[in-house]
Amino acid sequence: MRVAFAGTPDFARVALARLHAAGFTIPLVLTQPDRPAGRGMKLQPSPVKQFALEHGIAVAQPRSLRLDGKYPDEAAAAREALLAAQCDVMVVAAYGLILPQWVLDLPRLGCLNIHASLLPRWRGAAPIHRAIEAGDAETGVTIMQMDAGLDTGAMLLVERLPIADDDTTATLHDKLAALGGRLVVEALELAACGGLQPVPQPEEGVTYAHKIEKAEAQVDWSQPADAIARRMRAFDPFPGVSAQVRGETVKLWRGRALMQGRGSVAPGTVVAVDASGIGIACGQGRLEVTELQRPGGKRLAAADFLRGFPVEAGERFDS
């Protein structure tokens, strides 16, 4: 089976590596154009491009695939490359571009998407973040037959995964990336013998995982402590959760919710300080913050943070 691949970040690289290791012929990879990154803001290839180049796989990086769009020449070149690749199927994972109908129709088996949620819950851009933020008990990976809608295609394979109490987006991402890589190999092996059975998504239970915005990093102390603690895990490693104290923006990376013991003080007020953490009053309960970071500094355990930035009860962490 000849497999075209479209993806960009590390989540997609894991799947590409599994497909390569499984022995599928991969004549072409589509990925986003190189982006500036790092202190020098030099152009950096995506993780998918890096893997493809290391393994001698041809790469195309169109800014759009719309033949009638802003970059028609790039889209036309990508179309010629896909036609020349003579692929049976395209696997898509966190590519970042909308696939027009001509792409969906080109491979004889269509386009299969690796989606990091239990569809139809958390369609959209940030399913891992939003599942943790919402307090979901489980998530998983859905291999989906792509159509023209936003994550609306029929489900081909689904596998569930519990969300641990200490999972962050970083840790859950790695688990789901590994699961997605294994599951898409299984899907292609079944497709080769006609063993995939598409199942339409339920009409009920649809939710959208909207893109994470930097503005969401500001903590809202009027929320319950457990909701803030979930957001801290959901926004680790990006964009983090932050608050202002003594004129500095401090990142709050880890903490635990204590749903009793806030007292009558205003939300955002420090109610307890010791080596284990900084207790901050919330709308309900209090949050014991155990890992923090000052601007330009490293993430530090509360005891180390307090040695360089002593905080006392009665001070406020403002939104």
Rank of each mutant, 00 (worst) to 15 (best):
R2W: 00
F5R: 02
A6F: 05
T8N: 08
T8D: 10
P9E: 10
F11C: 06
F11P: 03
L19N: 02
A22C: 02
A22Q: 04
I26V: 13
I26A: 07
P27S: 02
L28R: 01
Q32R: 15
P33L: 05
P36V: 07
A37G: 05
Q44C: 13
P45L: 08
K49P: 00
K49G: 01
F51I: 05
E54G: 08
I57N: 04
I57F: 05
I57W: 03
V59P: 01
Q61W: 02
S64I: 09
R66D: 15
Y71H: 15
E74D: 09
A75E: 03
A77W: 09
A77K: 13
A77Q: 14
R79W: 07
E80R: 15
A81K: 05
A84V: 08
M90G: 00
V91S: 02
A93R: 01
A93Y: 05
L99N: 04
L104S: 02
L106E: 06
L106P: 10
P107F: 05
G110V: 07
C111V: 13
L112Q: 01
I114C: 11
S117L: 08
L119H: 05
P120F: 02
R121S: 13
G124R: 06
G124Y: 07
A125G: 04
P127N: 03
I128Q: 05
I128Y: 07
A131I: 09
D136F: 01
D136M: 06
A137N: 09
G140W: 07
V141G: 01
M144P: 08
D147G: 07
G149A: 05
T152D: 04
A154G: 04
A154P: 01
L161N: 06
L161Y: 11
I163S: 10
I163N: 06
D165T: 11
D165G: 11
T168W: 06
T169E: 13
T171P: 07
D174C: 05
K175V: 03
K175L: 13
L176Q: 08
L176M: 10
A177G: 13
G180T: 10
G181N: 08
G181A: 04
L183W: 03
E186Q: 15
L188A: 05
E189M: 12
E189A: 14
L190P: 01
L190D: 09
A191V: 09
A192S: 15
A192F: 10
A192V: 04
G194Q: 10
G194A: 10
G195L: 03
G195C: 03
P198L: 08
P202E: 01
E204Y: 01
V206C: 11
T207Q: 09
Y208V: 13
A209G: 12
H210K: 14
H210A: 13
A217K: 14
S222R: 15
D226M: 11
D236K: 00
P239W: 03
V241L: 13
G247Q: 06
E248P: 00
V250S: 11
V250G: 10
R254E: 15
M259C: 12
Q260P: 00
R262P: 09
A266D: 14
G268L: 06
V270C: 09
A272F: 11
A272R: 14
D274S: 13
A281D: 04
V289H: 03
L292K: 04
P295K: 11
A303L: 04
D304E: 15
G308Y: 00
G308W: 00
F309P: 00
F309G: 00
E315C: 03
R316N: 12
R316Q: 15
S319F: 00
